[in-house]
């Protein structure tokens, strides 16, 4: 098992290196960094000096190592547009995105998993069928449209909830939280529901499909033939087998919530990393794009790693591999 985790960590490092390479290539090959830093009237000589100072004339791999080294320290240079260190810009917005994503993930899981189980067990029930139809509508509704509709109803028509921004925040060290003020909590409601809805439908459909698959297995039939009741068959035997694959995919889905936050943040003008990123794309602000990419990759890799370890903890076939076929 330890060798399995070590292998996973090595793979994760490889992924991070690949992403770093892409981010570096952005700097290197797309546009001229000097052009983006200085004004039109800078002389050629000054440009060359700047180039020398920044180490842009060094061999590529040295530049890459320097880039990785800086990235490890959280340094991604200055934003072309904001003229501020990228690390500072992202740091200010990091907590906003994380809080939004966390609340959405909780909503998506707490609602999605039970709904998936329910629709699998009562496959032909009226309520399940309507859940399924609703979920299909949910998948067909683009996130930004959900946001707009919610704003239209609750923000514009009824004026119950704030339609944009984060409300009042409290700073705890470098972390700013909206959890501690009433306006902060109210501001969180619409964006988090918007962000959660799509993931929720996905999780629900996934849990349902996996559960139905397991319910067809021979060991469920054998359990029935031993007189086990439905509660035990569903929640003890089927659910445990269902959750093992579900954990992997759900983990990945939760990771993608952070990336999906781009859209929600843009609709609600939520001051997070996503909003910063989308503005950076519009402005071709490469340092921010690169930093965001690396950060998101890091979060994904960490989530993946946790999911893998969980997987091994839960599935006895991986935990005790004394016999049976080896590997995947």
């Amino acid at each position: 098992m330890i060798s399995f985790i070590v292998k996973r960590i090595l793979q994760s490092l490889l992924v991070m290196l690949a992403v770093a390479l892409i981010a570096f290539a952005l700097f290197q090959f797309v546009g001229d960094p000097i052009n983006n830093m200085v004004g039109q009237d800078t002389s050629l000589l000054d440009r060359e000096k700047l180039r020398q100072d920044l180490g842009l004339n060094d061999p590529i791999f040295i530049q890459f190592f320097r880039f990785v080294g800086n990235a490890l320290r959280g340094e991604f240079g200055f934003s072309y547009v904001h003229r501020l260190p990228v690390s500072q810009l992202i740091g200010e917005r990091f907590s906003a995105t994380i809080e939004l994503s966390f609340v959405s993930a909780v909503i998506a899981l707490v609602v999605g998993v039970p709904m998936g189980i329910y629709t699998a067990i009562n496959r032909r029930g009226l309520l399940s069928r309507s859940f399924m139809t609703l979920s299909l509508i949910g998948v067909s509704l683009p996130t930004f449209l959900i946001g707009i509709l919610l704003i239209l109803v609750f923000g514009v028509s009824f004026r119950w909830l704030p339609a944009f921004g984060r409300g009042e925040v409290v700073n705890i060290g470098w972390w700013s939280t909206g959890f501690l003020t009433a306006s902060g909590l109210k501001a969180l409601i619409l964006p988090s529901i918007t962000l959660a809805l799509f993931q929720m439908t996905l999780i629900m459909r996934l849990v349902r499909a996996e559960m139905l698959e397991v319910m067809r297995a021979d060991f469920i039939k054998f359990g029935r033939a031993r007189g086990l009741n439905n509660r035990s068959l569903y929640f003890r035997h089927a659910l445990k087998n269902t959750l093992i694959p579900v954990i992997t995919i759900t983990g990945l889905q939760l990771g993608s919530i952070i990336a999906f936050a781009i859209i929600t943040e843009s609709v609600f003008q939520w001051p997070g990393m996503g909003l910063l990123f989308i503005q950076a794309i519009g402005d071709a602000d490469i340092p921010i794009m690169a930093a965001y990419l690396v950060l998101i990759a890091l979060i994904f890799v960490l989530i993946n790693l946790i999911v893998d370890i969980l997987y091994v903890r839960i599935d006895p076939r991986l935990r005790t591999s004394t016999s049976g076929s080896g590997g995947q």
Partner: peptide, 23 residues
């Protein structure tokens, strides 16, 4: 494929679009 799959499609599309925008 694995590396790409760990990012949502929308982010990949954004990124590709961003690269063209810069280039």
């Amino acid at each position: 494929a694995d590396v790409q799959l760990s990012f949502p499609a929308i982010l990949i599309a954004l990124l590709v679009d961003g690269i063209f925008r810069v280039a």
